[in-house]
Computed example of a mutant assay.
Amino acid sequence: MARKFLIGGNWKCNGTRENVAALVEVLNEGGEFPDNAEVVVAPPSIFLQTVKDTIRPDIKVSTQNVGKNVRPGAYTGELCASMIKDFGVEWVITGHSERRVGFGCAGESSDLIAEKSKVALDCGLNVIMCIGESLAVREANQTLELVLEDHMAAFLKTLEEADWSRVVVAYEPVWAIGTGVTASPAQAQEVHSAIRAWVGEKVSPAVAESLRIIYGGSVKSSNAAELATCPDIDGFLVGGASLKPDFVDIIKAVEGK
């Protein structure tokens, strides 16, 4: 089965009205995108309306988070899944390492992230579920133990087999996010292959074959094409480079892969 690349741009907490408009213009004028690529951008929630109303129709919009509450209510600062769905946004990101770390506080647990992902899926949204290890975990040779037996296992407890058709798993080694250090294609492929094998064993071979597993961690136009040749890398979740014209080059780097 040929899996369509997904190229996601996580804008994080960046932007002004002026530079968001400029970035949308760059994307709108970026020319034809590869047929084998699906593009999703995740602006800060304050810019969701602007981006959704002005970006080209072949680029979908995502929120950077979703609450665990299904319906609106007394949840200050949260975006509930039904509101996101009603707004016409099709995607959400869950479990990004910056939320797991918690900006200096306890952060979100794997179980909470799994719960939020399930709520979003039940509301008809598509979910980019992020997983990944710190440098300390990698140096201790515990990457697969954490990524599979903690992060992925939490999803397994919550998700039903049918849910996986609207899931994208984003493997983002924390030591490569915003550091300029990228996992080598071999390092990334090793983890992606292990994730796919684990899903094949724990969920089903069919789900494993169709599941898109994308890579995030200092992806740039200079390394995107090589990463895209790895058989188990099905796209990218791009941070800093998604705020630059370079993002168009990253999208086009998967042409013919």
Rank of each mutant, 00 (worst) to 15 (best):
L135D: 11
L148C: 12
A153K: 04
A153S: 13
R138P: 01
L146S: 07
D150L: 14
K157D: 14
A136Y: 06
Q142I: 00
A140K: 07
F155A: 15
A154P: 05
M152Q: 03
A136G: 10
V147G: 08
E149T: 04
L146I: 06
E161D: 06
L148H: 05
A154C: 05
F155I: 13
E160W: 01
W164V: 06
T158Q: 15
E139H: 08
L135T: 02
L146C: 04
A153T: 03
N141C: 09
W164F: 14
M152L: 15
D163K: 02
A162S: 13
E133N: 01
F155T: 13
E139N: 09
H151D: 15
G132C: 06
V137L: 05
A154G: 08
T143Q: 11
K157M: 14
T143A: 13
S134W: 03
L146T: 03
V147A: 14
E160A: 12
E139C: 05
L146Q: 11
T158D: 15
V147D: 13
Q142S: 10
K157H: 10
E139Q: 11
L146M: 13
H151E: 15
L144K: 02
L144D: 08
L159M: 12
D163Q: 05
T158W: 15
H151G: 09
N141I: 00
A140P: 04
E145A: 14
R138M: 11
H151V: 02
G132Y: 10
D163L: 04
D163T: 01
K157S: 13
A140E: 09
L148E: 07
L135S: 11
W164C: 06
V137E: 14
A154K: 03
T158R: 15
A162Q: 14
L135K: 14
K157N: 13
N141M: 08
T158P: 00
E161C: 04
T158L: 14
R138H: 07
V137W: 05
A153I: 00
S134K: 07
F155W: 12
A153N: 12
E133R: 03
E145N: 12
N141D: 15
A140M: 04
G132M: 08
R138N: 05
L148I: 11
A136R: 09
V137D: 07
A154L: 02
L144E: 13
E133T: 01
L159V: 02
A140G: 06
N141E: 15
G132F: 10
W164P: 01
E161W: 06
T143Y: 07
E133C: 01
K157Y: 08
A154M: 03
E139S: 04
S134A: 12
E133W: 08
